[in-house]
C-alpha cells in the first residue's frame, strides 16, 4: 500500500470564515494525503470541518465569507490553492470530481438527466462528437447500475428516486475518469438498504476504475465497510489517523474511543447508548490547549494549556493527544486508557 504514489497531498490547510462575529477557522492546519486508487475516510461530527476540507480541495468554498488562508493542496505537482480559476475549472469535474450529500437537490430540476450528464462531458472533452458524448453518458449510467439508461436520459430528476439520483450523480462525477472522487456523505440522505448499495457501488468503481476516493462521513459503519485508511477530525483538526483495522481495534485518541463506544453493538444489550459528554465547541471560540480537553475524561493540566501535536504511535498511526506524547509516557499510565 505504501508504495503507491501520493495523488493528492494536503499540507497545513487552513480555511477560515470571515463573519461579523470574527474569524472562524473551520479547517485548522490539516495534513493528509491520498494515494492512487486508495479509499480514505474522513470521520467526524457535524461542523468538524470535513465538508469544508472537501470544498477547499474543489476550490468551491463559498467566498465570501470563506477563504483558504494557509497551507497547500498538491495535486500532480500543482498547488490547487494558488491555481487561477480558469485552471481550477479544468481540474474540477475532470481530474477531481465530487458527489454531494443531498441527491434530491443536487441535480437541476429543470434539465433532463441526459442534458446534465452530457454537459459534464462537453465542458472537458471539446473535441468529442455528439454521439461519442451521448454514448459515454449511457455507458456510465449502465456502469453505475441504472436500468433503462437510454430512457432515463430523457427524464427529469423529479421522476427518479433518491437512490437513482445519487447513482446519476456518481455517473456524472465519473464521466471524465477523475483521478480523485470526493464523496461528501453520499449516503446520509438515503434509506439503509440503498446506502449499502451506493457504498458497494463506490467501492466497486474504485476497484474497477482505480479512482482514489475521499469518503467523508460521520458514520463509522460506512468507514469500516469501505475505507482502507481513516482520518478522524475534531473541531477543524485531524486528531487521529491510521489504517481502518488499527483504528477500530486500537483507537487511541479519547475522541475516537468515544465515537466507537457510541456505535450500538448488537452483541450486548445496553439500556442507554454511550454518548460523549458535552458538545462540540462553538466554531470561533478562542481556545488554548487541546480542543477536546473540556469533554475528555483523561484531560490533565497540560491538555488545557498546550496544543498537542500529532504523535506517531505506530507505523501509519498518528494521534493528537498528550497521552501518546513519548515524553508523557511515564507520567501517565497509557494502559489506563487502553482498558
Amino acid at each position: 500500500m505504501g508504495d503507491r504514489k501520493k495523488i493528492l497531498d494536503v499540507k497545513g490547510l487552513k480555511t477560515t470564515f470571515f463573519t461579523d462575529d470574527g474569524q472562524i477557522p473551520a479547517v485548522d492546519n490539516v495534513d493528509f494525503h491520498i494515494r492512487e486508487g486508495e479509499v480514505l475516510g474522513i470521520v467526524g461530527e457535524s461542523g468538524c470541518g470535513k465538508s469544508v476540507t472537501s470544498l477547499s480541495i474543489m476550490g468551491l468554498v463559498p467566498s465570501p465569507p470563506g477563504k483558504i488562508t494557509g497551507g497547500e493542496i498538491l495535486f500532480q505537482d500543482k498547488d490547487l490553492t494558488r491555481l487561477p480559476e480558469k485552471k481550477m475549472r479544468e481540474i474540477r469535474g475532470n481530474d477531481i470530481a465530487m458527489i454531494f450529500q443531498e441527491p434530491m437537490t443536487s441535480l437541476n430540476p429543470l434539465f433532463t438527466i441526459g442534458d446534465q450528464l452530457r454537459e459534464a462531458i462537453k465542458i472537458h472533452k471539446r473535441d468529442w462528437s455528439k454521439k461519442q458524448i451521448n454514448d459515454r453518458a449511457v455507458e456510465m449510467m449502465r456502469l453505475v447500475g441504472l436500468p433503462r439508461a437510454e430512457d432515463l436520459m430523457k427524464e427529469y430528476p423529479h421522476q427518479l428516486s433518491g437512490g437513482m439520483r445519487q447513482r446519476v450523480m456518481i455517473a456524472m462525477a465519473l464521466l471524465c475518469d477523475p483521478k480523485v472522487l470526493i464523496a461528501d456523505e453520499p449516503t446520509t440522505a438515503l434509506d439503509v438498504t440503498i446506502q449499502a448499495q451506493i457504498l458497494t457501488l463506490i467501492k466497486n468503481l474504485n476497484e474497477k476504475l482505480n479512482t482514489a476516493v475521499l469518503l467523508i462521513t460521520h458514520d463509522l459503519g460506512v468507514v469500516a465497510e469501505t475505507c482502507e485508511r481513516v482520518i478522524v477530525m475534531y473541531a477543524g483538526k485531524v486528531v487521529e489517523e491510521g489504517p481502518v483495522e488499527t483504528i477500530f481495534k486500537d483507537p487511541q485518541h479519547p475522541y475516537t474511543r468515544g465515537l466507537l463506544q457510541s456505535v450500538p453493538d448488537m452483541r450486548f444489550k445496553k439500556d442507554r447508548l454511550y454518548s460523549i459528554p458535552g458538545n462540540v465547541p462553538k466554531p470561533g471560540t478562542i481556545h488554548t490547549g487541546c480542543k477536546f480537553a473540556p469533554r475528555c475524561e483523561f484531560a490533565f493540566d497540560r491538555c488545557i494549556n498546550e496544543n498537542p501535536d500529532l504523535y506517531q504511535t505506530a507505523d501509519n498511526h498518528k494521534t493528537r493527544c498528550f497521552l501518546f506524547d513519548p515524553k508523557e509516557a511515564t507520567a501517565h499510565d497509557r494502559t489506563a486508557i487502553k482498558s
Binding site: 470530481a97 443531498e102 454537459e119 459534464a120
Partner: peptide, 15 residues
C-alpha cells in the same frame, strides 16, 4: 445557494 448550482460548478462549468 442551491445544491444544483454547486453541482454545476463542481463539473467545471464557467461561472
Amino acid at each position: 445557494r442551491s445544491d444544483y448550482v454547486r453541482t454545476a460548478r463542481s463539473k467545471g462549468l464557467k461561472m
